[in-house]
Nucleic acid binder design. Structure first.
Lengths: 194, 194
DNA sequence: CGCGAACTGGAGTGTATGCTAAATTTTGAG
DNA sequence: CTCAAAATTTAGCATACACTCCAGTTCGCG
């Protein structure tokens, strides 16, 4: 394992190379040789720090998952709004498209095959739903909790879908959809007309 | 290429094996050997009918893309409703999860890497948006066309996102979301309360 | 039938991959 | 300074992959 400073730095370089490659050429192109070349490291060094290539990739993916729900201690959470949550998500997607891409890729390409990973993603999604539901109930106390939960699930699903569409076609107008989405869920701007 | 009946049958068997494997073990596990074993065919036969493994896989993916928007001649299209379109999509997803999965997998795993494929998916998505927009305008003529288009895009994005969530966690309640989604877009059932 | 073209299976090829072994250098606590 | 552990490089191994070659078989038109 890494105990000296040099080893830790190398470990970091490897993870950064892995992350960059996953975002640029996808999982398929992220070979061990590519990682080592990019990190400026021999294969032996890699295996001195990681048990397998999969470990490095999963480390990156895990970080991507965490990064989706950045920040907010439990105190600030009680003040966060649906709008701020949506903005945090969209801000992450647009400012870190590489990580967002890795997340989606992992969810669809692996999550659908590996039950363990699927469970991890599902759990993560459930936590996000809880967070949005809580915010929604704070802003619109008249909603039943089931109603709020369904709306939260829809909101998050739509955000995920929009992200995919945006990545396939950057002309997708995220700000407009953001506004529309908040209105349709019944928060923030004008109430939907019908 | 295939000219005899036998060759055409073999070709069909190969495509079916490819489709099944893509749905079961993903792109990663869909090797040439796996395809040939499953189809009961030698590698030579495969390459007598397909120029490459990629050709077979892309043929299957193309079919999956087409299958998402099944049926409806141009006459029936003028009578289709938002609800019928949503139901057609959800019906396809739940009755042919394998194909739906291939579609999503291809869109995310390849579409994000291969610009050509991304363009194909984007074009396909644009056509779907047009179709839903037209239906929405028919049902609610008071909407502006921009408004209808944005709602259609959101509806489709949410459907895609819901599909992903449902595949990761089958407990996702599609019928409820379907009803909610139609209401939120402003069609079908009760108008949203706020 | 006859015959050329299509089809078939399976061994074989080259290559890229993930990973290892061993020899060497670097690190840093005592 | 010493020295054992950690870090690093390099060469190479085993495997799996997409794909080719080729000898033999089947097809179906004339």
């Amino acid at each position: 394992m890494a105990r000296y400073r040099s080893g830790l730095e190398t470990r970091q370089r490897i993870l950064e190379a892995t992350r960059a490659l996953l975002g640029e050429v996808g999982l398929e192109g992220t070979t061990l040789k590519a990682i080592c070349d990019r990190a400026g490291v021999g294969a032996g060094s890699f295996y001195n720090l990681f048990a397998s290539k999969e470990e490095a990739v999963l480390t990156v993916v895990r970080a991507a998952i965490e990064a989706v729900d950045v920040g907010h201690d439990s105190d600030a959470r009680r003040r966060e709004t649906v709008e701020s949550l949506v903005d945090a998500y969209l801000g992450f997607v647009t400012s870190e498209p590489t990580l967002a891409r890795i997340y989606l890729q992992a969810a669809v390409a692996w999550g659908l095959s590996d039950p363990g990973l699927a469970a991890r993603f599902a759990r993560h999604q459930a936590q996000r739903v809880e967070r949005v539901t809580a915010a929604l109930l704070r802003e619109r106390p008249e909603l039943s909790s089931e109603d709020a939960r369904v709306r939260a699930e829809l909101l998050l699903s739509a955000l995920n879908g929009l992200t995919v569409n945006w990545m396939l076609d950057p002309r997708v107008d995220l700000p407009t959809h953001r506004r529309r989405l908040l209105a349709l869920v019944g928060v923030g701007g004008a109430v939907p007309s019908g």
